[in-house]
Design a protein around this nucleic acid. Structure first.
Length: 311
DNA sequence: TCCATTTGACCCAC
DNA sequence: GTGGGTCAAATGGA
């Protein structure tokens, strides 16, 4: 069981490395396309495209390997309960007994949910705490909040859980605010994957790329400084939401996968600091449900150089 | 008095 | 049967 976990972690790491590699190549290619006369070194667009393609192929390959390694019972929304699982026969499905599944239960998330990690539980929204629960295998209790304007029919909710000893809180949001009071204080900017994919299509044409700047860059910077953690992505499209959204390339995968961005992603002309961290979360992925990945490796990407042509 | 938080109990998906 | 999510009474602060 431990070997299985080790393998999974190794695969997860390799998957992330491939995705990050592909992403950085895509960013360079994007810069090239955006600025055709810029010298990006000896690497050609064709080579970059090949690198991106290779990264995708490798990622798919690794993901497929993961899927074949992980017993189905663990993938379908259950968490690893640490050694109680029992082995699987090759190709066969070992059904866990009810007793073995103790502590592994994880309720399916509704479609309209997303997760972010930040050092604070504050997000500018108006929340009212309605419960707190000690969670199995978790040192810290989970807190339940709903929108203060529930009386207006707002169904927005969030769950906050402190992560280990780190001063970080994982906040899971459910439903968007429908009330007027907190509309301007959406916790973060999200997009649906199908929208990202459509933007990726337009990305191929390269002419439609644009970098939306926040309506109020200084306030977003302030918010970023308050949050202190930044989720990174390629800011090249705008969502249809009221607020500007900064999209990241999530890559191929099932729909309904959402990526969360805190404001303040570096854009041309923006001098935000680049303490880069991130969380990718899928509200409902068929095989990798609940696979939240910290992407500290993205800190290697120097956006300032990328956008200002110092690479 | 109103509103937010706490907390034990209950419901229900697994 | 168990754990996670929610309810609602009790409590406290403004």
């Amino acid at each position: 069981m431990r070997n299985l976990n080790d393998n999974l972690h190794a695969m997860e790491r390799r998957l992330m490395e491939e995705l990050v590699q592909g992403k950085s190549s895509a960013i360079i290619l994007q810069t090239l396309l955006h600025n055709p006369f810029k010298d990006e070194g000896s690497i050609s667009r064709e080579e970059l495209a090949m690198k991106i393609l290779r990264s995708f192929n490798n990622s798919i390959s690794i993901a497929s390997s993961c899927a074949s390694v992980v017993p189905s019972a663990q993938i379908s929304g259950a968490v690893d309960c640490g050694g109680g699982g029992g082995s699987t026969s090759s190709g066969g499905r070992m059904k866990k007994t009810a007793k073995d599944r103790r502590g592994c239960y994880k309720r399916k998330r509704p479609l309209d949910s997303w997760t972010k990690v930040s050092p604070t539980i504050e997000d500018g929204g108006a929340w009212r705490k309605y419960g707190q629960k000690q969670i199995l295998n978790s040192k810290y209790p989970r807190c339940y909040y709903r929108c203060t304007h529930k009386s207006q029919g707002c169904k927005a909710k969030k769950q906050v859980q402190k992560m280990k000893e780190d001063p970080l809180y994982q906040t899971t949001y459910f439903n968007h605010h429908t009330c007027t009071g907190t509309q301007a204080a959406l916790p973060q900017h999200i997009v649906e994957l199908d929208q990202i994919e459509s933007n990726l299509l337009s990305f191929q044409g390269s002419k439609n790329i644009h970098y939306p700047k926040p309506a109020n860059a200084s306030s977003l910077k302030q918010e970023f400084e308050n949050v202190g953690t930044q989720t990174v992505g390629i800011p090249y499209a705008k969502s249809s939401a009221n607020t500007s959204s900064w999209l990241g390339n999530v890559g191929p995968g099932p729909s309904r996968c959402k990526q969360v961005f805190s404001p303040g992603i570096p854009v041309p002309g923006d001098d935000l600091e680049e303490e880069v961290s991130g969380l990718y979360s899928c509200a409902s992925m068929d095989r990798f449900h609940g696979l939240d990945m910290e992407v500290d490796q993205l800190g290697d990407i120097d956006f300032d150089e990328m956008y200002n042509g110092n690479m």
